[in-house]
Design a protein around this nucleic acid. Structure first.
Length: 344
RNA sequence: UGGGGUGUGGCCAAGUGGUAAGGCAUCGGUUUUUGGUGCCGACAUUCGGGGGUUCGAAUCCCUCCACCCCAG
């Protein structure tokens, strides 16, 4: 029987390194691929792509597998970065990593790999896939299905997630046991392509901003000024530079007037949502029927809560705090990811 | 100009003779493959200025300054 060729997305981190190692051990013909998506430095922040690429390559050499670099910079800029910037400009709060999975990893990377002769692709995501069905990872704490709900069934049928059944601690151990160069590498965080730089620093490179008023919706008084409404999102507390008394939380904003509205009332109704309108619904397989009992995750690592969907309206069993427009609601039927939509 | 009040770190604010609470903000760390939240830590040798009383004052006295309110 012919051995299957698998292209593994290697980012230079522990997870994808072990993913490749495991697949080699399982008898696949493995090729490591580094996706070159973003290489730009930012003031005060060096883009780590070169180091990541070097790490990924070292591991590939260590494993004795082929190694390639796919350059998606142009597409990445268009599909992910521009999307993100435009969403922010429109006053919403996008999730670029979800878009990255939808457009780059499970579309561009998949297509390019297949075209290059691969039978399947694999990544180091913590998620499980069974016959085209996406399921939560065994390690509930690391489950990354929230970021994957926009993948197509077709893509899933050609995808392997070898870490889906493992705990993070196991992954570390196994990586150490195999002496992978990246075994002890620190977790990466922040937006995947920007490294550890803040969204604020990133946006300010692409958008011209003006100072504007911060208005207390309870007293209707201007309590301070900000340097651009685009930098603020629902529920945000820090960065307002307004002191005295209790903390202020962002409740809404007006991009036209460039005003940010805040409250000191943690129970302010603007901060809590129980009924949510969704747009851009995406289903991996079948759309659930109206009124079907299902669960929803409103942000990465948040607990699943019961909910019901009818048409485009999601009714939660309890109010959730600070879910901004542009963010995603991911629907589950127990451990199966059904799909989801974007808060509008 | 009379009468009253206030002045404590960037902001709010305890503390009325015993050697500067707390909160907000900010900064740092942590949590997190989105934003945000949360959590932990740091942050006034000094209490508007000057002088005095006292073993000892932010707290008592004198004086100057600033701001606020009422009166006219």
């Amino acid at each position: 029987m012919k051995t299957k060729k698998v292209y593994v997305g290697m980012s230079g981190g522990v997870d994808s390194s072990l993913t490749a190692a495991l697949l080699v051990e399982q008898g696949y013909e493995v090729t490591g691929v580094y996706m070159k998506n973003w290489t730009q430095d930012l003031p005060g922040m060096k883009c780590p792509w070169a180091d990541d690429l070097a790490d990924a390559k070292r591991v590939a050499v260590q494993l004795g597998i082929d190694f390639k670099v796919f350059d998606f910079q142009k597409e990445y800029k268009q599909k992910v970065v521009d999307y993100m910037i435009n969403e922010y400009k429109a006053g919403r709060t996008p999730n670029p990593d979800i878009m990255c999975n939808q457009e780059v990893k499970f579309k561009l990377f998949l297509d390019a790999s297949l075209e290059d002769g691969a039978d399947m692709i694999a990544t180091g995501h913590y998620a499980q896939v069974e016959k085209g069905v996406l399921k939560k990872a065994v390690d509930e704490n690391k489950d990354q299905t929230y970021f994957l709900y926009r993948i197509t069934k077709k893509a899933l049928e050609k995808t392997l997630f070898p870490l889906g059944g493992m705990k993070k601690t196991e992954v570390r151990e196994q990586a150490k046991k195999r002496h992978l160069f990246t075994a002890s590498k620190k977790e990466s965080m922040g937006i995947c392509f920007v490294g550890s730089v803040g969204i604020r620093e990133f946006l300010s490179q692409y958008v011209i901003t003006q100072p504007g008023a911060i208005i207390d919706i309870q007293t209707r008084e201007t309590v301070g000024s900000h340097d651009g409404a685009i930098f603020f999102t629902l529920g945000q507390r820090h960065g307002l530079h307004v002191g005295g008394g209790l903390p202020y939380y962002v409740v809404s904003k007006d991009m036209e007037k460039n005003e940010v509205y805040v409250t000191r009332d943690l129970n302010d109704k603007e901060l809590w949502r129980k009924e949510i309108k969704l747009s851009d619904l995406h289903w991996i397989d079948q759309r659930p029927v109206n009124g079907q009992k299902l669960q929803v995750r409103m942000r990465h690592r948040a607990a699943l809560i019961d909910a019901k969907l009818s048409d485009h309206t999601l009714l939660l069993s309890g109010p959730q705090r600070a879910i901004a427009t542009g963010q995603s609601a991911v629907l589950y039927d127990s451990s199966v990811v059904l799909g989801g939509g974007i808060l509008s």
